[in-house]
Design a protein around this nucleic acid. Structure first.
Lengths: 347, 347
DNA sequence: TAGGTTTCCGGAAACGTTTCCAGATCTCTT
DNA sequence: AAGAGATCTGGAAACGTTTCCGGAAACCTA
């Protein structure tokens, strides 16, 4: 009825009671049943809905949490965001998406901007970290949970996974299948994941050739995969397996294999990482190391929640173990159709 | 240095000038160069950063825009969100993601919640619409841009596409290739897109068999695609083409075709819709009708922006035309590798 | 130099809410 | 029945900012 929004003061006047009583009646404690009834009625008549800003100013809480990543479109991040949202929304928190940008300085800037107080906390997935970023994280008084690298030593809550171990699992899986000439198709070495995965490949004593794609995409992957397969042949026996640092790189490897007339998994077994929807849908479906994106997202959200509620129980650090999901790209007998409902609709 | 955040008042004291001058010096007009210099210095010393909440309360603007969809993980929505973010973020707006839930009533509720004033506007992608929702949209004083269905008649700004026309284009493309037995693999008919696409198939005078999958996923699609191909054979001549209402359904059709020993595109040409990354990466890469998700997202964001700045230039309605992107699933000579960088990284 | 105009500054109000504090009313126990 | 305690209410302050308004100072013009 009223065009511009009703305020609590107006509700108070309408109900004929004081402002403070009105607030109590609607929200918190200490109000008689009669008072509550009366105020409720007045509020309903005026179509009152509390102003989030006024409340935030007074309570010093925004009920908002930021989720910051380099590339919002990245399926892995999307999965995290979905999980985070699922935890936070039912608890009354809104999720603000932000972009860190590519560089570590722009990320640092973003962290500093938290001082604006528009958010009760931030879940951050940095591409890379440097000292300035860590310093900025430490001086921030609004809580930040970092996903990606354990940072407990710096007093920063973090949720991580052991992708090196994940790569090791993939290698072992291939060995168990009797594959002996295993190549590694990695992404750029100057990224945190690129480094960790390389480490994992070496840790398990794998000897095969290694190639780095320029980035974690199919297009770049195909180029590197061609080199990898060629390198294998040059060394004598051709590869019989490729471990890829990524599902997209795994797809690239399969493309390159087909170019050479190799069958997958017959001539060449291929593993990916991240267990994305892409890999599940692809043909052949991808054996992939799940890094528990959703689970990590949930964990980060839970920590964030307790932080936002004012917890001070010391720095937390959670690690989610990788898990190998076997599908057709290494095992032709695997079920082709473990596909979960993904897209409800496409308007 | 100071642990808790500095306020404008403290900056004013430090600079030895009044609060109002301080505000002007930092933000708006009417301040002498000397004053600006002085205040800037004080602000820098104290590490001052303005409080977003206080500012919002006073200015009655939050610099936040909500983006609400049923399923945040849906790739099509993700593409829209990315585009929206790209438009809004550089202009100083934050993007809040929200979930409408499945039902039209929960969507209506969400729209009503806008009265909380936590956001300057909302971009809404409703799965379905009903009178209650439209009514709620009309009485909302915070601006809403709807993506999906033209709503100009109700005075609601909207950005839409003509997916019926898109299906028609796909059919015509197949006809030009000499395909004559064209089946249609649709999604559920009780959704807005399902209805529109069916209409498009009929409008162009296509006679082939039609099947509806239970939802727009690969798993459901495979089941329906088997029926579709079987139906084609039962009628006499087998199908030589399938138009799918979705890229995921198109992938399902290709799976079903392979099961029957059919080659794609040799025996069976297949088209999808939405032009998703999935389709680009899949083998064979998918001929698909782009509905311009990114472009629609940008358009919606632009409208939102002008609305948030207080524009009152009447109801706007933008329609983005569909566009056919030809790839391997209908034309074997198409370039296989028009793959854009997607995933920078997978930490 | 006087008058008018522009430029700049400080005081104060306002945005909408929650919560502290003190006083009033009520309930229960002895 | 009186006092202690619990329960409830209203007044007022506070959160941090922008902006209106009046006045002072500086500037320009005649």
């Amino acid at each position: 009825m009223t065009s511009s929004r009703a305020t609590l003061i107006q509700v108070a006047e309408r109900a004929g009671v004081s402002l403070s009583s009105t607030s109590r009646a609607l929200h918190g404690g200490g109000a008689s049943a009669a008072m509550v009834e009366r105020v409720r009625a007045a509020a309903a008549e005026l179509g009152y809905s509390p102003d989030a800003i006024g409340r935030s100013l007074r309570m010093k809480r925004t009920f908002q949490v930021a989720f910051a990543v380099a590339d919002i479109g990245n399926p892995v991040y999307v999965e995290m965001m979905t999980a985070i949202h699922e935890v936070l929304a039912p608890r009354g928190y809104r999720v603000v998406v932000m972009s860190t940008g590519d560089t570590t300085t722009s990320t640092t800037e973003l962290v500093r901007s938290l001082s604006g107080g528009f958010v009760d906390g931030m879940i951050l997935v940095p591409l890379r970290t440097d000292d300035a970023l860590i310093e900025a994280l430490r001086e921030q008084e609004v809580p930040v949970v970092v996903m990606g690298r354990p940072l407990k030593e710096h007093g920063i809550d973090s949720v991580s996974t052991d992708s090196a171990d994940g790569i090791a699992r993939a290698v072992n899986h291939l060995r168990e299948l009797g594959r002996s000439r295993i190549g590694f198709l990695n992404g750029p070495l100057d990224t945190t994941p690129g480094q960790a995965r390389r480490r994992g490949f070496e840790a398990v004593g794998a000897q095969g050739p290694v190639e780095e794609a320029e980035n974690f995409t199919v297009a770049a992957g195909v180029v590197a995969a061609r080199r990898l397969l060629a390198a294998g042949e040059a060394e004598g026996r051709p590869l019989d397996a490729v471990v890829a640092a990524n599902d997209l790189l795994a797809i690239a490897a399969i493309r390159a294999a087909r170019e050479r007339g190799l069958t997958v998994p017959g001539d060449l077994a291929v593993t990916g990482m991240d267990d994305t929807e892409f890999g599940r849908v692809f043909q052949p479906s991808l054996t992939s190391v799940s890094l528990g994106s959703a689970e990590r997202g949930r964990a980060a959200a839970e920590i964030m929640l307790s932080l936002a509620e004012g917890s001070h129980e010391g720095t937390r650090q959670i690690e989610v173990g990788p898990e190998l999901v076997v599908r057709e790209s290494t095992d032709p007998t695997a079920l082709p159709d473990d596909i979960e409902p993904l897209s409800l609709d496409s308007p």
